[in-house]
Amino acid sequence: MRIVVDLNRCQGYAQCVFLAPEVFELHGEEALMYDPAVPDGQLERVARAVAACPVGAVLAGERAGPGGG
């Protein structure tokens, strides 16, 4: 599965980093880095991160764009 973070929406709440720390990473206090190709072992954690984002900035699967699923 692929993911995209809409960095225009991201406000640095970092819920994704808490919930899927191997996929999302905070550089310094606010810059978010992430792996757009989610390994199978991380799917459950990424689903929790998608649900938790307070601004709906983490898009997964079809919502991450064409071929995203």
């Binding site: 980093v17 808490f18 919930l19 899927a20 720390p21 905070l26 310094g28 206090e29």
Partner: peptide, 11 residues
């Protein structure tokens, strides 16, 4: 408790 220093605590 959390990132950036302790990102894995809650997990």
């Amino acid at each position: 408790f959390g990132p950036p220093h302790s990102p894995g605590t809650v997990d």
